[in-house]
Amino acid sequence: MWTRLKRLYHKMGSPKWFYQISTLCSKWCMAVGSVLMLTGVVWGLAFAPADYLQGNSFRIIYVHVPASLLSQSAYIMMAVAGLVGLVWKMKMSFVVAKVIAPIGASLAILSLLTGAIWGKPTWGTWWVWDARLTSMLILLFLYFGVIAIYNAIENDEMANKAAALLAIVGSINIPVIKYSVEWWNTLHQPATITLSKKPTMAPEMFIPLVLTIFGFYCWFAVWVFARARNEVLLKERRTKWVRALVQARQHKSQIGGDA
């Protein structure tokens, strides 16, 4: 049992194995994610009833909430991947942590933009210092820090370790930041309507939300795999298996061109 686990661990650390398995996983995630997203978005946009208070603008929920949830959990995933890399010296883990950073930041930006757009019909202005939006803004700043570290440190190994450490410290701080921002918000202006907070949502509104949330997670996996595979190709470009892979592709495309 132990040796088996150990073998699995070494396999997971191997870039070649990761490349092969991620190609397969990526296809499945793409298929499942696309079905979920298509169903969820069509259902949410065209079939779900309008909200009695916010009217049709509530349909923004189906992109806003998945983006917010995902960018938050992506930060935690990045920290966990970094921790695994630091403690068990697993190289692939650092690669995953590195590629999550820009994706997570893009989702945080999407969450902020859709939140602002949603705010316009709800509050009458584009930006309100609402607790959730403010926490999301700070999360984006935390992503900026991690991305800045990758850009500033040229040595790859050092950048990976430094960014992992920062992500871990940041994720320890996330609960404190969230708590203090919520406390600050209730102190200054108790918002009458909170975006995306519906404890009693009708099922025909709630199910499409669940669909788009899971759909976004699947697509997120596809994006992480795609970027991680690029990193592997770049790092291993001198190895035999990458060369064989590229040659096989070349060969295939030549045959395709002749036919």
Partner: peptide, 23 residues
């Protein structure tokens, strides 16, 4: 500690630390 060896550490530091100062 993270920026000690970097030439351009001065600009990086606020980005890394300020979000943690918010609470």
């Amino acid at each position: 500690g993270l920026t000690v060896g970097l030439r351009k550490g001065g600009m990086l530091m606020p980005l890394l630390i300020l979000p943690l100062y918010i609470p």
